[in-house]
């Protein structure tokens, strides 16, 4: 049985994040058991409400996997998502919650390796924080 921690919610753009996740899986790369993956038609669909709700429901971190800048099928969905993440980070900070709990992660559809790597980075960041506090 895998561990229940850390609970990371990954909102994945159907054009990039999702294929990257599938790719990571097909390569057998290590991903935390408690990773929750939510497909969205576009990274820009990851709304502030979704992100906050995920944290509210108990997620340790929320990651948004979207296309690289200039690659969005809908022109600016990824840019909107990034701006939202930046805005929410400032709100989290003033809540006394670490802004690193939200991450915007551009990824190419065929780079499962990068996907897994970014998730691992987030896990490590969470771990080191846990140990500190």
């Amino acid at each position: 049985m895998g561990s229940e921690k850390p609970k990371i919610v990954a909102f994945c753009c159907e054009e990039s994040g999702m294929p990257a996740y599938e790719h990571a899986k097909s390569l057998g790369l290590p991903l935390p058991d408690a990773l929750k993956v939510i497909a969205l038609p576009c990274g820009g669909k990851a709304e502030t409400g979704y992100i906050m709700k995920a944290l509210d429901e108990g997620a340790d971190a929320v990651m948004i996997f979207a296309c690289y800048e200039g690659n969005c099928k809908y022109v600016q969905g990824n840019i909107r998502a990034k701006k939202r993440v930046d805005y929410l980070k400032t709100r989290l900070e003033s809540l006394g919650i670490l802004p690193e709990k939200i991450a915007f992660c551009p990824v190419a559809p065929a780079s499962g390796a990068r996907f897994a790597e970014m998730v691992q980075e987030e896990v490590q960041a969470l771990d080191s924080r846990e140990n500190k506090s």
Partner: peptide, 9 residues
């Protein structure tokens, strides 16, 4: 919705 989550959190 967003503010409610923030407050609860």
């Amino acid at each position: 919705g967003v503010l409610a989550s923030q407050i609860r959190l």
